Computed example of a mutant assay.
Amino acid sequence: TGDHEVLAALAAEVGLDHNEAAAILAGDRFTDEVRADETEGAKLGVQGVPFFVFDRKFAVSGAQPEEVFHDVLQKAWDERSPFTMISGSSSKQNAAGVCTDDGCELPSRES
């Protein structure tokens, strides 16, 4: 129970209710959720902490420099959002670009 008290005190330091945190730590209220997280982590290959998963596709294991997180976040974003929006300088060009469920028709480049 010593560990529970330390964790409850830390919870209070970050603004959570100390008594509620202590009660949750002493009970089994979230046991099913914790077991589900453990199972999912094992399926993802988690073998230790910290372990971070981005977009269920990229993982960073262990304490890493800031640049590693920047790189993985950029890679995940690039793969999720591959489009670059281009807007013309005139309202005629902007109005000519049309997108539907079947794709996009972009205005042709005039010489």
Rank of each mutant, 00 (worst) to 15 (best):
Asp28Ala: 04
Ala12Lys: 03
His70Phe: 09
Glu110Tyr: 00
Gly27Glu: 08
His18Lys: 13
Ser81Tyr: 13
His18Ala: 13
Ala36Leu: 12
Asp28Cys: 07
Pro65Asp: 14
Thr39Asp: 10
Leu7Val: 15
Glu38Phe: 09
Asn19Cys: 02
His4Leu: 07
Glu13Asp: 14
Gly88Met: 03
His70Lys: 08
Arg56Tyr: 07
Ala11Met: 09
Val53Met: 10
Lys57Thr: 15
Gly15Arg: 03
Gly62Cys: 11
Ser91Val: 10
Ala8Val: 04
Met85Asp: 03
Ala26Phe: 02
Val60Cys: 07
Ala22Phe: 08
Ala23Gly: 01
Gln74Arg: 14
Val98Ala: 12
Ser111Tyr: 00
Ala21Tyr: 03
Ile24Cys: 13
Phe58Gln: 00
Asp101Arg: 13
Met85Gly: 04
Thr84Ile: 14
Asp3Ile: 10
Ala95Pro: 05
Cys104Ala: 09
Leu7Pro: 01
Asp32Trp: 01
Glu105Asn: 11
Thr31Tyr: 02
Gly97Gln: 04
Lys92Asn: 06
Leu73Phe: 03
His70Tyr: 10
Arg56His: 11
Cys99Tyr: 05
Asp28Leu: 05
Ser81Asp: 04
Gly45Trp: 02
Thr31Ile: 01
Ala11Gln: 08
Lys92Gly: 06
His70Asp: 06
Ala8His: 03
Gly103Asn: 08
Lys57Pro: 04
Gly88Val: 03
Arg109Asn: 06
Asp37Thr: 09
Leu16Arg: 11
Cys99Pro: 04
Leu7Lys: 02
Phe83His: 06
Phe52Asn: 07
Pro82Asn: 06
His70Ala: 11
Asp55Glu: 12
Ala96Gly: 12
Thr39Tyr: 02
